[in-house]
């Protein structure tokens, strides 16, 4: 049953007093993957993560982590999970080292092991030089790293990070991303974010959520390919208008085309290829054969941003 699957979510539903925060979602995460839960605020990402981390019970459906049910084997599951909640709550009155040691001991590490692990994670998260500072006096970036260090301290198999880069400056975001990527070799990571480039850069796979349901789940590349059916190729060619029109009309791979004059002898051709084919080599070859001057040839790739906006856009808007 547990063939390399770290997380198995089946028909998960969570209702808060009648209102469904998460409705009937299913997804799986394999060992060693970095998966991003992506969605606007209120999409149900945090709720899903809280259920995975055994903080909240599911209303219905089953959730298994490493083959263990999160409700039946709650403590065993918690031992395998490193969870950093949204807004990263910490004991602000404690010192960094003291806090991490407290957390390590709480998670059942022996005295010696906890000392070793605290040193390792402080090194990993670049906290060694602030180990004696009081957490409440640290900057947000450092606090975030303390939260991360806490999630890592007991060497969990699965790391769940709820919005790990929120409120950080670009340098800190880069550092946190680096850290997350470096974890990928021997941990499974589930992160949630509403910032798309973040997911695009760090994750092997993305699960896009909206209003409690999953809209799409695939690798960033596949999601892009899926969308590229609507991509366009732009070419600026110095050639007579009629010749261009005739040429595109004869090409079977071109679904639609639009030729408009640009400055000088150039014309701007916008081509929509069939089935998301890449027509650029064909166009270059054509220009060479006919002796046209070609000064621009680009493919308008739909960025993930477009996909994201498209799938999470409210339906009314699409209808209108």
């Amino acid at each position: 049953m547990n063939d390399g699957l770290m997380i198995e979510v089946e028909n998960l539903t969570k209702r808060y007093s009648g209102h469904a925060a998460v409705s009937n979602i299913s997804f799986t995460v394999r060992r060693g993957e970095i998966v991003g839960l992506l969605g606007p605020n209120g999409a149900g990402k945090s709720t899903t993560m809280r259920i995975l981390a055994c903080y909240l019970p599911a209303t219905s459906g089953t959730v298994r982590v490493a083959g263990l049910d999160v409700y039946e084997h709650s403590e065993e599951v918690r031992r395998r999970i490193g969870y950093m909640p949204e807004n990263n709550p910490l004991h602000y009155d404690m010192r960094v080292r003291e806090y991490l040691k407290f957390r390590a001991r709480l998670k059942g590490l022996s005295r010696r092991r906890s000392r070793e692990r605290v040193d390792v994670v402080m090194e990993q998260c670049d906290l060694t030089h602030v180990s004696r500072r009081i957490i409440g006096q640290l900057s947000k970036g450092y606090r975030q790293r303390v939260g991360l260090a806490d999630a890592l301290v007991h060497e969990p198999e699965l790391i769940i990070l709820d919005e790990p880069t929120i409120g950080l400056d670009p340098h800190q975001i880069r550092a946190v991303r680096q850290l997350i990527k470096s974890l990928a070799c021997d941990h499974t990571v589930l992160i949630s974010t509403h910032i798309l480039p973040e997911a695009e850069m760090t994750c092997n796979r993305m699960v896009i959520m909206y209003e409690g349901s999953i809209l799409a789940a695939d690798s960033p590349d596949n999601l892009q390919r899926f969308m590229s059916g609507h991509s366009q190729i732009l070419a600026e060619i110095a050639a007579p208008l009629e010749e261009l029109n005739e040429c595109w009309a004869q090409m079977p791979e071109v679904e639609q085309f639009d030729v408009s004059p640009a400055e000088g002898a150039y014309h701007r051709c916008a081509l929509t290829p069939r089935d998301g084919l890449d027509l650029r080599p064909r166009i270059y070859e054509l220009a060479r054969q006919r002796g046209w001057l070609l000064r621009e040839l680009t493919r308008n790739r739909h960025s993930l941003e477009d996909i994201y906006v498209q799938v999470t856009r409210p339906e009314e808007e699409e209808e209108s």
Binding site: R50, Y55, E75, R79, Y83, P85, R103, L106, K107, G108
Partner: peptide, 8 residues
């Protein structure tokens, strides 16, 4: 939340 998601 961090307390209750620790194995205690």
């Amino acid at each position: 939340e961090t307390l209750m998601t620790a194995p205690v």
